[in-house]
Design a protein around this nucleic acid. Structure first.
Lengths: 347, 347
DNA sequence: GCAAAAATTTAAAACGTTTGCAATTTCAAA
DNA sequence: TTTGAAATTGCAAACGTTTTAAATTTTTGC
C-alpha cells in the first residue's frame, strides 16, 4: 500500500528533489538528467501521482476541456443523436488527451448565458456549437470573443467566416429527388418544420435545385410544415398532404421522425407503402429499420462527424489557423423498402 | 461596449475596492455593507464578470463538476440510453449549479485508469458509475479512496455499503411472468447475455422467484445465452430456442435489443406474434414501438433515474451522510401487442 | 467630544502547478 | 589542482480565487 502522495510537493520531498525538478522531469524536459527523469517517473508511477487539474489550468491557461452546451430537449428525446454525438466527441478528444464538459441549460436561462459562462470561466479551451439557427447569436458572440469553436452545421450567411462541419443535406435531398424522378414520380411532397434551423433551408434548397436541374414543368411539390415538437400539428399537416386523390406519390421528410409519422399516417389512411406512396427520410434512426416496411433514408454517421469535429476543434485550439476549417460530409443512402416506382393509375 | 474585465483584481481596481471585499460582496456576505454589495453586483453584471473556475477550484477544493466515465461502446450504439442518461444527469446537476464531465476511455486503457485519473486530478467532486459488474473494481477503488459516488445499478454483495440507484428489474420480470402465466403460458423462454453484469442476475432471480411463488411444477423455463455484442451468436441462440414444436410459448428478453431479435427471428421462422409466441422486452427503446406488432416491454425512465442519481450524488458530496443513500425504481409495463394468451393447440 | 463597540474593509497567505532566471554541481581541459 | 563551461538543479514568482486575522472606519452611549 503506497503512501498517499497527492501533490508535487510531497512527491518532491519523498525524492529529495525540488518541486521544479520533479515538475520538469515529469514533463520530460531534456535539461533534467535522464537518470533523474527515470527515478521521478518511477516514483510518480508507484504512488499514482496525477497532477491537479485546477492548478495546472490556472498557471498554463489551458484546461484540457472542450465544452458542449446542452439545451434541455422536450420530454421525448426520440433518437440516439445525443448519445452518438457525445460518444464521437469523446473518442476524438480522448485521442489527444482532452475531455468533454457538458453544460446543461437550466429551464429559465438562455443558451447564450450558459455558453458565456463556460467561456468566461475558463472551464474550456474551445466549444462545439450545434443546432445552428438562421441568426445565431452564439456564433456572433464566439467570434467577437475570438474563442475557439467549431459549429456542427452552417449559417446561410457565407460572409461570416468560422469553422464548421456539416452534413451535405442538399446533396442528399437532390439524390432522393433524382432517384424518385427516375422511378417515375412527378408529384412530390416535402414534410418540414417551422423552426428557423439552417439545415431546413439547405436541404430544401438542395431539393429545389435538383428539381430545377430537371427542367420538367410537370414536376409538382407540396410542402407540409409543422413545429418541431408539436406532434399533433405534425400529424394534421401530414394528413392534409395525404388527403384526396391529388396527393403526392412520393414524400421526402426533413428527418426520420417526420418520415415515421408519414408511414404511420399513410397506413392509417389505407395507403400501402411503397405501392401507393414512396417515403424517404433522413438520419437513419434505429426505428427506421423496424418501422414497416423499412424506411429508406440517409445515414449521416453522427458519431463519425462528431469525431471529426473534435479533431477540428483541437486543431483550432492548438494552431489557431488563419483560414477557417470546414468539412462537408456526404450522407449515404440507406435503401430499404419504403420507396418504389410511381403508381401507374394516376397521372 | 464594456471594458473587458476578466479578473477580480481588475474589477476591484475599477471599483476602488480590495479584492477581498469584491469577492465577499459577490458571495453575498452579510458583513459587507449592503450598498457596497449592490454596487459590486451591478459592476460585475455590467462587465460580465465570471469567476475563474480553476482558481476557485484550487482554493476551495471543490470543482463543481461531477464525472462520468464513458467506455467506448461497440460501433452500433443501438439505443438512446446514453443521450437520456446524460440529459437527466445534466438536468439534475444544473439545478444545483453543477456540471458534467465526460471522460472517455481510450481504446488501450482500462476504465479504472480513467476513473482514477478523474478522481486524483481533482477534476470532479464526485462520480457516477454505471454498468455494475459482479466484481466491480471501480466501486472497490472509490470506497477505499472514500470518494463520493453513486452507482447506477447494484452489486450482488449486500455487505458492501455504498450509494446506489437501481431499476427494480426483479419486480418487472416477476410481473411479466405473472401476467403471462395468467394468460395460460407454462413454457417460458429467457433470452439473456453472458456478460457478468449484475442486472442480469437480478432480473433472472426475479423471474425465478416468481416461478417459485406459483409452485406449479408444470412451468418450464428454457434459457438462451449469447455475448452482448455478438449479433450472430445471439441470432443463433434465439433460433435454437424457437426451433422444434417443443418451444416456449412466451419469451422474456433481458432487454429490448434481444426482444427485437426474437421478433425478427420469429417472423423469419413463420411464427405469428402474439398468436404463436408472446414476447416481452425491457427498456422501451424507440424501436420497440415501431417493430411489428409493437413490443410489450418495461419503461425504466432512464432520464428520470439519472436526474435522481444527480440529486443523490450532490447530496452525498454536500452532506456526506453516514448511511448510504439508495433508491429502487419500479419500471412501468408498456403494454403493446406482442403478448397474448397461450396457444391452445399445444399443452 | 471621547472611548468603546460595532460595522466595514483590507493585507496576506494559501491552493498546486509551471517557468524565468539564478545557483549549484560536474566534468574536461589546462 | 585549478578553471571555466556545460550540465543539472532550485528559488521564487505567477496564475485568480477564497479566507483568516487584523486594520480601519463608523456609530453609539454618556
Amino acid at each position: 500500500m503506497p503512501v498517499r502522495v497527492t501533490t508535487l510537493k510531497e512527491l518532491a520531498a519523498n525524492l529529495g528533489l525540488s518541486i521544479t525538478t520533479v515538475s520538469r522531469a515529469l514533463a520530460g524536459h531534456q535539461q533534467i538528467a535522464l537518470k533523474t527523469r527515470e527515478r521521478v517517473a518511477q516514483a510518480a508511477r508507484q504512488v499514482g501521482y496525477v497532477p491537479n487539474t485546477a492548478a495546472r489550468t490556472l498557471v498554463s491557461g489551458r484546461s484540457g476541456f472542450v465544452g458542449l452546451v446542452l439545451p434541455i430537449r422536450g420530454p421525448n428525446l426520440i433518437d440516439s443523436f445525443l448519445g452518438e454525438f457525445v460518444t464521437g466527441l469523446g473518442e476524438g478528444l480522448v485521442a489527444h488527451g482532452a475531455d468533454l464538459i457538458l453544460a446543461t441549460v437550466p429551464q429559465d436561462q438562455a443558451e447564450l448565458a450558459v455558453l458565456r459562462h463556460v467561456v468566461e470561466s475558463g472551464r474550456a479551451d474551445g466549444v462545439v456549437v450545434t443546432r445552428i439557427s438562421e441568426v445565431d447569436e452564439r456564433l456572433a458572440y464566439l467570434r467577437r470573443r475570438s474563442f475557439p469553436f467549431v459549429a456542427h452545421g452552417r449559417l446561410l450567411d457565407n460572409d461570416f467566416d468560422y469553422n464548421w462541419l456539416d452534413t451535405d443535406g442538399a446533396h442528399a435531398f437532390g439524390e432522393a429527388f433524382d432517384m424518385l424522378y427516375d422511378l417515375g414520380h412527378r408529384h412530390f411532397g416535402l414534410v418540414t418544420i417551422s423552426e428557423p434551423m439552417t439545415f431546413r433551408h439547405l436541404r430544401q434548397d438542395g431539393l429545389a435545385a435538383a428539381i430545377a436541374r430537371r427542367g420538367d414543368p410537370s414536376v409538382r411539390l407540396d410542402v407540409a410544415t409543422a413545429p418541431r415538437f408539436d406532434r399533433g400539428a405534425r400529424i394534421q399537416a401530414v394528413n392534409r398532404m395525404l388527403q384526396g386523390s391529388d396527393r403526392p406519390t412520393a414524400v421526402i421528410a426533413l428527418f426520420d421522425e417526420l418520415a415515421l409519422t408519414v408511414l404511420e399516417e399513410a397506413a392509417r389512411a389505407g395507403l400501402t407503402v411503397p405501392r401507393d406512396l414512396s417515403v424517404i427520410g433522413f438520419d437513419n434512426v434505429l426505428a427506421s429499420a423496424y418501422a414497416p416496411p423499412g424506411l429508406t433514408t440517409f445515414d449521416a454517421s453522427i458519431r463519425h462527424c462528431a469525431r471529426e469535429i473534435a479533431d477540428l476543434l483541437l486543431t483550432v485550439i492548438a494552431e489557431k489557423p488563419a483560414a477557417p476549417l470546414t468539412r462537408l460530409i456526404r450522407p449515404t443512402l440507406v435503401s430499404r423498402a419504403s420507396h418504389g416506382p410511381a403508381p401507374r393509375t394516376r397521372s
